[in-house]
């Protein structure tokens, strides 16, 4: 009997399938208990791709439907590159998502201050936007020393990020270039 991973999960998740385990010839008690736990917590499976190196290993993420937090993250056995396997980092992605040390509120550090202050998104976006506009307006250069048209902002620079999705990278560069930035760099340079 050859079982794919999907079929295996279906089999173990079915409460009435206990008798079927005997035919597999090995002890499935722990797997069964785990699968039942997932079922009790109503997990929803989605696929993702590992966020670390560039091999692009497939992941299956199980999310608690009530709390919207991850219950489990493991390698996707259907993925042709990793065939279900993950390295030490990939196997620990659960701890990246469900990490109590993540910063989940906007923080601000004032000039000369020795501490962070919690702030709202509205405040931060407005304050950053005002500063961007001020520096852009003050440092915008229509022509360079040779008198050639350059239409650029000299006083702003950006680095990042290869950790973003393609769609995010694309709008980020368009956003920066529309503001006139030329000092745009990221991980790929170093």
């Amino acid at each position: 009997m050859k079982l794919g991973r999907r079929e295996f999960v279906k089999l173990t998740a079915a409460a009435t399938a206990v008798t079927a385990f005997g035919g597999l010839g090995f002890d499935l008690a722990p797997t069964k208990a785990h699968a039942q736990l997932l079922s009790l917590r109503k997990g929803k499976e989605t696929t993702s791709v590992c966020c670390y190196c560039s091999v692009g290993c497939g992941l299956i993420v199980t999310t608690d439907e009530k709390t919207k937090r991850a219950i489990n993250i493991e390698g996707d056995p259907d993925h042709p590159i990793n065939e279900g396997a993950l390295c030490a980092k990939g196997s620990a992605i659960y701890q990246l998502a469900e990490n109590p040390q993540r910063i989940t509120k906007v923080q601000y550090r004032a000039p000369g201050s020795d501490k962070w202050e919690e702030k709202s998104w509205d405040w931060a976006i407005t304050e950053i936007a005002k500063r961007v506009k001020k520096v852009r307006d003050e440092s915008f250069t229509l022509k360079n020393a040779k008198g050639e048209v350059v239409n650029r902002t000299e006083g702003l620079a950006s680095i990042g990020s290869a950790a973003m999705d393609n769609e995010e990278c694309w709008i980020y560069q368009a956003f920066l270039r529309s503001l006139g930035l030329t000092y745009i760099e990221h991980q790929a340079r170093i």
């Binding site: 961007v132 003050e138 620079a157 990042g160 990020s161 290869a162 950790a163 000092y183 991980q187």
Partner: peptide, 11 residues
């Protein structure tokens, strides 16, 4: 001192 503002985004 060329830059007044800087984004270190995901870096």
């Amino acid at each position: 001192g060329q830059f007044k503002g800087f984004f270190a985004w995901g870096m």
